[in-house]
Structures are given as C-alpha cells and as structure tokens.
Design a binder for these strands. Structure first.
Lengths: 174, 174
DNA sequence: GCATGGGTAGAGGGACCATTCTACATCTGT
DNA sequence: ACAGATGTAGAATGGTCCCTCTACCCATGC
C-alpha cells in the first residue's frame, strides 16, 4: 500500500533527524517506523534504503513548507523565504541540514551524493524563480546554506544577517 | 614526545578527511598514522579521542592557511579571505567542512559539539578583526559557511558570489 | 471452508570492530 | 653492560549490528 511506505518514511525521517544517521540501529528504526522488521525490510530492503526514503520524505516536507504561497514582491519573497528557513531550523533541524549529515555519515554512497545535489539544486532553482532572480542561483544557495549552517551558532542574528545580505543582492545588478 | 602526537594527529586528519568519520576502522587509522595500535591508543585512548586530535590539527592548519598575511585594506582582506577559503575547499575539503562532518557522524558527543562551536567562533572573530568589521561576525560567518557548503555544487561561481555579497556587506553600514 | 496476501514477533547467523593484552625489539643514559 | 622507557606486531575478547528466516495471525474473496 502507498500509505505504508509513507508511514515508514515519516517514521524514519523522525528517527534520523532526532538521533543522527550513524547510531540508530535497524531495530530502533523499526520502532520509529512502527512496523515489524520484516515489513520494514520489504519496503526499504537495506539500511541505506531507509536513509534514502527518509531524505526523500524530508525533501517533500521542506519544499512544501518553504516555498508555498510566497509573496509576489521580489524583496518580500526573499525575506519571507529566509525567515521560513529560520523557522524550519528552529523547529525541525536544530542540528543542521539532514542531507549534509547523511552524506557526512556515509561519504562513499553515490546515491546519497546524487540526492543531496538534486535537493540543493532544486532548492536553488525554486528560490531563484520565486524571488524573480533568474541566474542568481549561486548567490541564493550561498545565502540559504550560510543561514542553515550558521543558525545553530547565531540564531536570530543569522536570519537578520541573511536578510540584510539578501537585500543587497536584490539591489546590486549583474 | 611532542613530535609523536603531531605525527599521529596529521595522519588521523588525512585519514578522516579522505574516508569520512564513520567508516575507517581503528586499524585503518593506525596505518594512516604510521604507528602501532598500542602507541596510537597511548596518545589517543579511544576512537573519539582520535577524532578530536584530528580536528584540532585541522583547526591549526586551517587558521594558519586562511589568516596569515592578509592584506590591510578592508575589501582586499575579505576578497582574499574568501578566495583562500575557495582554494582550501579545492585542495583540502572537497567533501565539505570536516567539523560539520564529524558532528554529523556522532551528534551525541558534547566534546565534538564544543569543538565545532569553538572553531567557528574563532574563525568568525578572526575574520571580523582581519577585515576591520567588528560586530559583523554573524554576517561574515554566514558568508564563509555559505561558501564552504555551496562550493561543492557551484565551484568558482560560489567564490564569486561570496565576494560579491562581501562587497555589499562592506558598503552597507550598520 | 479455506487459500492467499500482507501483516507481527522474534531468534540466529555471520561479520565486523574497538579495545586490551602478550611477547618481543630498540634506543638512551649511566 | 644493562635497566627502563618507548616502540612494533598481532592475537584474543566481548559486544554490536545488519539481515534472514521461521512460526504464527488475520482479513478478504471465492
């Protein structure tokens, strides 16, 4: 059933977000997913697949939360975007970006690397289009990544810094 | 001897940088350090200590490479700083910041978290003082982290984006 | 009534790994 | 010459973990 993989992915995402990627054993993941070991392995045939399922679920949630119903105005869109990322950090990702954490925990996995790249590229692209700044994906991704990574250290100050740099980005041409 | 711990730390840093923090076994670390298992455990009594020794060594190398002999001029200093971080990424950290990777691989370690915070705080402080931008640590760290994290995706474009945002930071007051 | 598909519960295999311990080599100062 | 500190080489231990497999339960349709 489609609901089963959704339920499993949601549980896995919760488990990995709370406990990191290295330490939770498959038995802990089973408890978090709320199914039996056999069913867990049926839908995600290896621990690596459990990681991928969790990240795909997170990607969907992140995109939905960050990009839906942004204001139309250029500056307003970017400001809102950055504030939402700050809110996401506070509520969901106090330990930093889950995609980077997954790759760091298993740097040899090509599938994981590809998923990270796809996630970041899609975020940059959606941000550029939402803010009306085509071709500025590099600058926007730099702001978003900088905010995500410096939020644990500077909190609300990091959001303000990102918004200030974002205004400079909009005013500066080229 | 002091040279022994230095040699071990250097080898450990190389091993973790090349293979990540999760997968290398202590035997691999021993080979990378070029000493016996007994000596390795004498200077770093647990695998967690090996990680800390590697990160301390990296911190020293990073600070020395990024911050020595920066130009005096405000804009020149920040431009050079960001270019050097780009060079560091290309040559030494193609897979991203080693400190973040270590914390991601073992999120429960308080010592590791503290070391990450100290490293980032010191980087931000040195950057602010080198660029003559006291009180702008949050903005500078955001730029540096953004560059570090987006470099794997955008390469030289990421450096240019960081430098452009850096110029905006210097011109904008407050 | 019962075959079947999809679920639970949980034990076991086989491999790997961090750490400790034993036995031996080599330098150094006296 | 030799005692002691410091090193190497590598085996043994104890534990954990991923994954598989057996045994069983239960709804649904014919």
């Amino acid at each position: 059933m489609a609901e089963m993989i959704e339920r499993i992915s949601a549980g896995l995402e919760r488990a990995f977000a709370a406990r990191g990627f290295a330490s939770p054993s498959v038995e802990e993941l089973r408890d978090a997913a709320g199914v039996s070991l056999r069913t867990l392995y049926k839908y995600t045939p290896s621990r690596a697949d459990m990681v991928l399922a969790a990240l795909e679920h997170r990607h969907r949630r992140y995109m939905a939360r960050i990009f839906t119903e942004l204001p139309e105005a250029q500056g307003g869109a970017l400001d809102t975007l950055l504030a939402r990322v700050g809110g996401w950090m506070a509520e969901e990702a106090a330990h930093g970006c889950l995609f980077h954490a997954a790759v760091a925990a298993d740097p040899d996995s090509a599938r994981l690397r590809a998923l990270l790249q796809r996630h970041k590229a899609e975020v940059a692209e959606r941000a550029a289009s939402a803010c009306g700044l085509p071709g500025r994906e590099a600058e926007l991704l730099l702001l978003l990544e900088g905010l995500t990574q410096s939020w644990p250290l500077h909190g609300a100050q990091a959001i303000a810094a990102a918004q200030q740099l974002g205004r400079a980005l909009i005013q500066a041409p080229q």
